[in-house]
Design a protein around this nucleic acid. Structure first.
Lengths: 223, 223, 223, 223
DNA sequence: AATGAATGAGAGTTCATTCAT
DNA sequence: CATGAATGAACTCTCATTCAT
């Protein structure tokens, strides 16, 4: 049906797909680099090669721009992840490990993960954004992890831990990594030192988690 | 009639010696709650029960107010800690554990630890404050930890690790805890869930550290 | 009904090319009338028919606005004057007279000459502006006059006086005139009286100067 | 009658004689150095060795402080000068010369003459002070000079010029000298140059004036 | 009499947002 | 569609003046 009439989409939405890609990319860069409040919309526009007025043509306010960045880079991906979860066939331990490593590759190591740090620190000053972020990102993420843990429990692989606590234990090292990655403020650099290897760190943490979760602990321990 | 009115508060209250403390306390609260940039000096003043002008009577600028908060709550305490370190008599493993647990009690669990989170996120926008914080807080902290590790190595208790890397390994969980504590933004609350027990978490991390550091690994490992 | 209302003025009037000129004109008026410190940027903007924010669109600060006024009205004209000097063919005595009379017509009698009075009194409070003014105005003016005196000496017309002193002797009456012109403060008005005729005054002063400078003094001179 | 009760002077006035000498001196210094608006009352108080509050005990406002400085240093001296004028016995030419040279010694070369420059430049911003200054200083000065010129005319010594114009011709060089003396802004210094000798300058100007005024012109005159 | 802590209106400057073109 | 000139509310900081002590 839509194929016939080329769907005059709500004029708000149509441009969203055509032009604002550059705006969203510029906004992501700057939000992550400088924070939400310290990012000037004019600078976003300039980085995208358009005028300040044009930005407001596509996004009615700075807040909506922020939300669009979150949707574009984070929450928009949950359907895919959820589908992958539904289709996964291996053991839940493998699933968990796969999930975290994939997260690192796709999100954690990308600029987009800076958005989480940003909400962590500026959320209180922009309550509407905080609420939005919780609904769009935090809760879906919790849901996904909770389902993994539940699957483990239902299949007799995992101990039946308090779901919230389990979710939290999974998220903690991910959150930590994000923070380290984006803590590139001069004052926290230990200049000469080798930085942590994120993948190794994650891998260790997964093992530690599994040691605590798996019903028949496989004797092995963190290396 | 007028007698009933609850004492129209005297305009000029004359409490010079108490003022700076009240202002510093208000500033600490607000900086930690809202961040540096988002905190309005007028609000700080109001929280301290004085007018905007009065604040500038005691602190010549917002930046100096911030620095004073840092000195009052963090860097001013290093001399004491350094002295305690010099006087410590037990094993270095005990010392490290003691140091971290004490840090939690005295700083990590207090509002003051929010200042670190603040610098983490706003340092880039306020380079002078970042430099100040590095000199006053980060570097002394690194020094202190480095000395502990060195002591361990010199007494034959610890392996001789790359000092910067060791410092970093010690600080990481502390930093993480601070961030969690102050990430009580609405968007990160797992509302119903029990939060991590900070002391238990720290204790575990110390043990993990020691497993890696101690020369004669006592077979045991993190659970 | 609404048709009668005298055209509610459009909020955004879009006159980019005209704006800086209008702002500079308003700034010149107000700086000369009230002084630098006492002139409010908002008032400058209002006189130019724009809002305070608009002024900062064209000039990044009050200081830069001031400098732009100086460049526009004074220092920008030196190239022309220098060229005219280089092309002058008559006697140096004529040249000096011509120079001073022209100065009066072009600058001395204009509002712009009020800027000199302003620097005279406020320079100490705004050292950067004072330095700027010295570089942009005072020194070029000294150079120009010095070259005239030098020409007179080299062509055997003038006595070889200490150049700085000579420059000063030329500038003094010009400075004086400027001050009188702008001293139309109520307190210095001799209300009914004819004011000094500037051109006659200047002419006299030139003659006095020449009496002292010319090698063959024409007999008469003040004692 | 007043002689009996030791005249409890209006409490406003009494201190005026005891304490505020230091305040007036400090105020004179600072007004002359920095201008009226740029002088901070707190700084005046500090220079006088008292607190800001004390200053307001003696002078109800900054404006009144300024007026007191004027009275103390300038207008308060007119009675003496007027008396000396009345008692003078020589020729009016001598009188005029004497008057101007004395003015230089007593006022022109002193800090107090900076007050005139100050009113010249700031008067417009402080109309009440301008009015005050005109009444207290400008008009009495005009009167005094006018009387001298009148005496010259009445005794057949001077031509009967337009009184206001004559007054002005007398005042111009005095005003000029004051301005030069107080134009010690960096931007107007001709650093290496010998400055004008004030007394010689004045002497010359008096002669020029007399050339124009005396009934039997001594042949020479400026054109 | 003397203090100095406290005030608050007002300054220059920034920036998200609007809208005539 | 796209622009960018224009806005004005909000910010940090200053200083003449007040008044409890």
């Amino acid at each position: 049906m839509q194929e016939v009439t080329p769907t005059p989409p709500p004029k708000h939405e149509r441009r969203k797909d055509a032009r604002p890609g550059e705006l969203l990319a510029a906004a992501l860069d700057l939000f992550v680099e400088k924070g939400y409040a310290a990012t000037r919309v004019e600078e976003v526009a300039r980085h995208a090669g358009v005028s300040k007025g044009t930005l407001f043509l596509y996004f009615p306010s700075k807040e909506e721009l922020f939300k669009a960045v979150v949707r574009e880079n984070i929450s928009g991906r949950f359907p895919l992840w959820n589908a992958q979860f539904a289709a996964f066939e291996g053991s839940t331990a493998e699933m968990l490990r796969h999930c975290m490593m994939l997260w690192w590759e796709r999100l954690g190591s990308s600029k987009a993960s800076g958005m989480t740090k940003l909400m962590l620190t500026e959320g209180k000053n922009f309550p509407e954004l905080a609420t939005f972020f919780r609904h769009e990102v935090i809760e879906p993420a919790h849901d996904l992890i909770r389902r993994i843990l539940l699957r483990g429990a239902q299949r007799g692989e995992f101990a039946a831990v308090d779901p919230e606590y389990g979710v939290y234990a999974v998220l903690a090292p991910m959150l930590f990594l994000q923070l380290l990655v984006h803590a590139n403020t001069s004052c926290f650099r230990t200049d000469g030192a080798r930085p942590l290897n994120p993948q190794r760190y994650l891998s260790n943490q997964v093992q530690t988690l599994l040691d605590g979760l798996l019903l028949r602990p496989s004797s092995s321990s963190s290396g």
